[in-house]
């Protein structure tokens, strides 16, 4: 038995990067302000002093440029971790991510893998307004050739990075900004975790709540509130948005016969739409109620705190949706 450490999501991500740098000399971190400033969310604080400028590299404000350098380094045999400050800025690098990283294996007839990991902050809640707060991981989950991870727990923040680096193909890791300060205990020997499967975070028999990333903890709170009403909710953390672990989703829904998808991203054409469709395709005859969705409001994320919160999924909305599936 290992002892548990009190730690935070931010420290878990930092430990994961430090661990990777120590394990494999081919690993290096680059991005805007990751070195001297310590990362805009302070994730990489202290790593420059520990590992030096060769392996902790500050880049110019040029997402397309340094993401391309990351792809080149990966093709050349290194194992780069590229940090993009927030998902909104990754749009500047879409050409590199989608036209190059995701396609080269295919375009080369299987000759060239791109073992690149890109980390990005995602999501709203810090009053950073409409150019720094969106949840665009669903967009990336649309792209064949990418693996899309959304660590929501300390274990996943600590464990997904190394497994992602071992993947021979590009992996995108989305870290929700509201998770960085989340504190909790983590086993001292916590290490790599799988990046294949969804996880049942709470078992229940009446309704399945499916979610990921920053919305997981609100969904767990909602499950607790539902339990007080005598409704037993199962909470599935998707963990991996591409490829989706359909088996876990379908198995849970087949047990509970009801599903609510909770997604901070927008409803139209998003992750929640995909999940609901998979349930229709694979578990239609198991359903006792239409699939419900609780999503971000279809507006650019507002700046004022009360409007920002109003635009995001909240516990009360999740509880209400779960009740509706039960006819209550």
């Amino acid at each position: 038995m290992s002892t548990a450490l009190e730690t935070t999501y931010r420290e878990c991500v930092r430990e994961a990067i430090r661990d990777a740098l120590q394990r494999d000399p081919r690993v290096f971190l680059m991005g805007e302000d990751v070195g001297h400033y310590g990362g805009c969310y302070a994730v990489s604080k202290g790593l420059l002093a520990e590992f030096g400028e060769e392996r902790i590299r500050d880049t110019p404000l040029s997402e397309n440029g340094f993401t391309g350098i990351g792809i080149g380094a990966a093709l050349g045999g290194l194992r780069p971790i590229v940090e993009i400050m927030t998902v909104n800025f990754s749009f500047l690098a879409l050409d590199q991510i989608i036209n190059n990283a995701a396609t080269l294996l295919h375009m080369s007839g299987g000759a060239f893998n791109v073992p690149l990991v890109i980390r990005m902050a995602t999501g709203a809640g810090r009053q950073l307004a409409a150019q720094h707060s969106h949840s665009m991981e669903g967009w990336y989950a649309h792209i064949p050739g990418l693996r899309v991870l959304t660590p929501a727990t300390l274990e996943d923040a600590r464990g997904m990075l190394w497994t992602a680096l071992e993947d021979p193909d590009p992996v995108l890791i989305f870290e929700h900004v509201m998770l960085y300060n989340r504190a909790g205990s983590l086993a001292a020997d916590a290490g790599p975790v799988d990046i294949e499967r969804a996880a049942v975070r709470r078992e229940g028999g009446d309704v399945t709540l499916l979610t990921y990333g920053g919305a997981l903890h609100k969904t767990l709170e909602a499950a607790e509130a539902l339990a007080a009403e005598g409704i037993s909710a199962e909470v599935v953390d998707l963990r991996v948005l591409r490829p989706l672990d359909e088996a876990t989703i379908v198995a849970s829904v087949a047990r509970t016969r009801r599903a609510v998808v909770v997604d901070e991203g927008w409803r139209s054409g998003g992750v929640s739409a995909e999940i609901a469709t998979r349930i229709m395709e694979r578990a239609f005859w198991e359903l006792d109620a239409p699939v419900e969705r609780v999503c971000g409001a279809e507006v650019p994320i507002p700046y004022p705190a009360h409007l920002e919160q109003a635009a995001l999924p909240q516990v009360a909305g999740i509880v209400a949706a779960a009740r509706r599936t039960l006819g209550r």
Binding site: R257, D288, A289, P290, R324, T325, L326, G327
Partner: peptide
């Protein structure tokens, strides 16, 4: 039934 909108459900 006992489901949403009076739907007959598996129970």
């Amino acid at each position: 039934g006992s489901g949403p909108g009076g739907a007959v459900v598996s129970g």
